[in-house]
């Protein structure tokens, strides 16, 4: 446990000494802020229109569905592009500068290295997402959204982001080139993001499988306020798989 914390602490120090973390977090906030404004303006317009149409049986738009759920969906897209920027250096940099040899020959296990590094990523992801949580919270002050789906949706976004981070780390573990790691994780995550796209045309079992594999399909329940055991189990196994692959990759230098 002490080893895991030591490695996590060292990673966090690296993140916050280098400008990467600040840039990624700032960029994320900027984008989320812009989309929040966008969804809110759309909601306001819909609301106005519904007032005019009310006597003809027009529907009053739902704040949760239009603004919060929409914002969460957009955050997932942004994360596909920003998470690789956070994860690309996590192992690749160690290999490039030779500290990897130090870690491997120290009395820490490969699993401890993986867990320590993942923990540091988790801290950054949670900090970043919590900061962006300010936007939905604003709605609590000025409106009356339903709180439970807001919270479950946030949990869904966090789980999805952690899954993305575990994939990014696994990819970074296979190379010593940060750019290669960044591009490959971005491609992998983007593929995962759209993996359910051919489901409709394929139909049958293939469709079921693709839908099951898609993190985006799995997170929908949580975004709508339904905490389903299946989705949580999916994300836990998703993250575990990423960590397992990272662990194998860290031992890959021994295969030659």
């Amino acid at each position: 446990m002490r080893n895991i914390l030591a490695i996590c602490k060292r990673e966090l120090l690296s993140f916050f000494v280098s400008p990467i973390a600040y840039f990624v977090i700032t960029g994320f906030m900027l984008l989320v802020g812009f989309f929040f404004f966008n969804y809110l303006a759309f909601f306001a317009r819909m609301y106005e229109m519904s007032q005019v149409m009310a006597f003809r049986g027009g529907q009053i738009p739902n704040l949760n569905q239009t603004v919060i759920e929409g914002l969460y969906q957009t955050m997932l897209v942004i994360l596909v592009f920003l998470i690789p920027l956070l994860t690309m250096r996590i192992v690749a940099e160690e290999k490039r500068r030779g500290t990897f040899e130090l870690l491997i020959t120290s009395p820490v296990t490969v699993s401890e290295i993986v867990l320590g590094k993942f923990l540091s990523l988790a801290v950054i992801v949670v900090v970043m997402l919590s900061l962006s949580g300010i936007f939905p919270l604003l709605l609590v002050v000025y409106g009356s959204p339903e709180i439970p789906p807001m919270v479950s949706g946030f949990v869904g976004v966090v789980l999805c982001a952690l899954g993305f981070a575990s994939v990014g780390m696994a990819v970074s573990s296979f190379t010593e080139n940060q750019i290669v790691a960044g591009v490959s994780s971005m491609v992998t995550l983007l593929l995962l993001y759209v993996i359910q796209a051919p489901a409709e045309s394929l139909g049958g079992v293939a469709a079921e499988v693709l839908r099951y594999l898609s993190p985006i399909e799995q997170v929908q329940n949580l975004l709508r306020g339904v905490i389903s055991l299946q989705s949580v189990a999916y994300f836990v196994s998703f993250i575990t798989l990423g960590l397992f692959l990272s662990q194998r990759a860290l031992e890959a230098h021994r295969w030659r």
Partner: peptide, 30 residues
Amino acid sequence: RQKIGYLPENPPLYGEMTVSEYLKFIAEIK
């Protein structure tokens, strides 16, 4: 690994850490 101290050909340093931070990290993982 517990019994050896190893200095590779290129000293394995973390550039963004100070020397005492680095040694503290090493002390912990060893």
